[in-house]
Design a protein around this nucleic acid. Structure first.
Lengths: 218, 218
DNA sequence: TATTATTAGTGAATGAATTCACGACAGACC
DNA sequence: GGTCTGTCGTGAATTCATTCACTAATAATA
């Protein structure tokens, strides 16, 4: 099915949530699940769940709900996680190492097939079964290993350089963990994940003694 | 200043962006900066920048712009990062280790003062200058070290247990890296960071051959 | 000092996302 | 089959966020 309307970022994130929830519910033996069930577990409204799903087709049965397994498979298909993705990781430091061991990536089909670094002492060594390559050989490795997504986990100071290497190598999607704003051509997807921003978000609410759902109005 | 209107999540995230940008601009020697400058570097509109800031007061000079240093300080104050926060980290595994070394946390004043684990082999050992405590001693440690924020970096299967321990210990803000939906009382702030969801977001756009063009940054 | 060029601040307009509310079905039960 | 209950799918209404467009204020300049 083709996507007709503009899908909001929130909708896509919620699909990820639904996917995880459906996986859990499937494990618990539920064959069908209603929008109410899904909403309740995620603190959303049933209408929102139905609206989100409706952008992609209609999968439910009136009076009954959605078939757990089929809906999960359909969402996996929409998100593109019903296949494997070859991922290259740049930066064999702390965050890089954590990501290599991060089960959730593999579980969703994101397979780290190459690791790059610029530290000569690390290059050539074996890291969880993957030999670390020189980041300057990125173009060749991307081609050889058919890498489709690059994850940047290097210090902020070298992130743009790494990013440029990835773009030159023909990469079309980059997930960046360096706390810096990268410049990419418009045809390249870039997502920057700044963990400090998340903790600042908590700090804001603590500081202003607000509750997330209970802010004074005019 | 009291906050009168509801501040959107996006606005708070953008404040974090402005803060980083102002720090950079200050370093580059800019004494003043206009909403246009800020907007341009972050791919936002000047109106959005002004509106965001206007929720918290008026800091600018018409005809000139905002004083870089003062605005940065003011945003730091709004976000609550003009002070130090005592942070406890639970989970001395891969992600936990990465977070301990994550400079951006310290730079913003989030100081990891305690590390917890449930692995007897790790408890008592020294990890970057911090002795690892038994997670069952959390309540005592929270009190002793005046911990205000808990970061959860344990496997999904034990995350809820850890979360409950933190809540019992009186913690009011939790940053969760486990890929699971935690239950907390409504007075406790919870922010869940799921790295897999970010890569799924890229996967969605790659799969559907859409461009991120107009997707808002948050 | 007067004039022009900028730019903040903000109510109003627009646009986007969420929620409401209702019609259409499907299943269960008699 | 008929009736009742539950739930989807969706246009309409509402709420929320962003952008527009204008005013007020200041800086720069002559």
């Amino acid at each position: 099915m083709t996507i007709r309307r503009r899908i909001s970022e929130s909708t896509i994130h919620r699909l990820s949530l639904y996917y995880r929830l459906l996986a859990a519910l499937e494990g618990e033996g539920y064959h069908t699940v209603s929008s109410k069930d899904l909403a309740h577990r995620e603190k959303l409204t049933p209408a929102q769940v139905r609206k989100d799903l409706s952008f992609f087709g209609s999968f439910g049965t009136r009076g009954l709900g959605y078939p757990t397994k089929e809906l999960k498979a359909r969402i996996a298909n929409i998100l593109g996680i019903d296949r494997q993705w070859n991922v290259g990781l740049v930066g064999a430091g702390n965050i890089g190492s954590a990501l290599v061991s991060y089960k959730e990536f593999q579980k969703q089909g994101f397979m780290i097939k190459a690791i790059f670094d610029n530290d000569q002492r690390k290059i050539g060594s074996n890291h969880k079964g993957i030999v670390i390559s020189d980041m300057n050989d990125m173009a060749a490795e991307v081609k050889k290993k058919k890498l489709e997504i690059i994850v940047i986990a290097v210090p902020a100071s070298v992130a743009q350089k790494v990013c440029d290497l990835a773009v030159t190598a023909g990469i079309k999607a980059i997930l960046n963990f360096a706390p810096v704003n990268l410049k990419v051509p418009k045809e390249v997807l870039l997502r920057t994940e700044n963990m400090a921003m998340e903790i600042e978000f908590l700090s804001f609410f603590l500081t202003n003694r607000l509750q997330l759902d209970n802010i004074e109005r005019t």
